[in-house]
Design a protein around this nucleic acid. Structure first.
Lengths: 142, 142
DNA sequence: TCTTGACCCTCTAGCTGCTAGAGCATTTAT
DNA sequence: ATAAATGCTCTAGCAGCTAGAGGGTCAAGA
């Protein structure tokens, strides 16, 4: 039987976070000692590890809820879990390409820093210059 | 003179967001009509564009506050702005490498989906299997 | 000039995913 | 028996917005 602190250590989660997961019903209410302290068994350890692992992979708590649900019902078709993973993959790839563009831009900014005063600092200039970024949302009538 | 709605459109910001920026003093209090509606000029348009552009590059509101401060004081040395940009670049690169690892893992999960029932779904199995991820935080005494 | 509809106002509360702190109780080792 | 370490609940806070209620204002057309 594990105290909440030990469970936290074993899973690399914070104590508060575990209680939070209980509150939002991602983790079940555990048993308690006479004095009212939580005690956890292996099932909870597994579940929390699953959650933590999923979080590290960038799944939202809602997605994790779905995944836990699927894994609690082994008769449901696998493609639901697959779909969640695919959705997640798509999001990750989108984030990656955006970040990649940012990196390029930031590198350019840093490379071109004048080294002088802010009045001719390229970093600020790039940020100030919005001539190229008025395309997406710009309504030319206004 | 722009209404808040026009300003929002021109900068691709939501109206509520502009008011929020005013509230946290990232944007100045604008002039008002007799009836109490906000009216904006070019200075505000520029400032908001700067903010928006910086946000798109992933800067935090705090970082943006610093940057705006620098750009208001053209005599300060450029390297402060440079440092902020470098910090940002570092963060972006960290996020990139983490995301890249995630993508690999997710791709593997999706590739190996059994197509059958969740009971032997690789997606769930990978998530459940924490044998490799007990290294960082694991205290072997517990 | 009046009306209408699009816009604007403030205020409060909500979202995600935690995290921190106050003030107190329990557990465990010595 | 005592004291340190850990646990408890409750409330509030963080970033960075977003949404909705319940109303007021503005500008264009009839």
């Amino acid at each position: 039987m594990l105290t909440i602190g030990k469970l936290a250590k074993k899973t690399g989660t914070k104590v508060q976070t575990i209680r939070y997961y209980e509150q939002i019903e991602l983790m079940p209410e555990p048993g308690r000692t006479e004095g009212g302290q939580r005690r956890y068994g292996d099932a909870e350890l597994d579940r929390l590890s699953f959650i933590r692992h999923s979080r590290q992979l960038g799944f939202s708590l809602d997605a994790i809820r779905e995944l836990l649900d699927l894994s609690d019902n082994p008769d449901r078709p696998c493609n639901e879990a697959d779909a969640i993973a695919r959705r997640q993959l798509k999001q990750v790839e989108q984030r990656l390409s955006r970040l990649d563009a940012l990196r390029t831009e930031l590198k350019r900014m840093v490379r071109e820093c004048s080294g002088g005063h802010t009045s001719d600092c390229r970093v600020l200039e790039v940020l100030r210059d919005h001539s190229e970024c008025l395309t997406d949302h710009q309504d030319l009538n206004d």
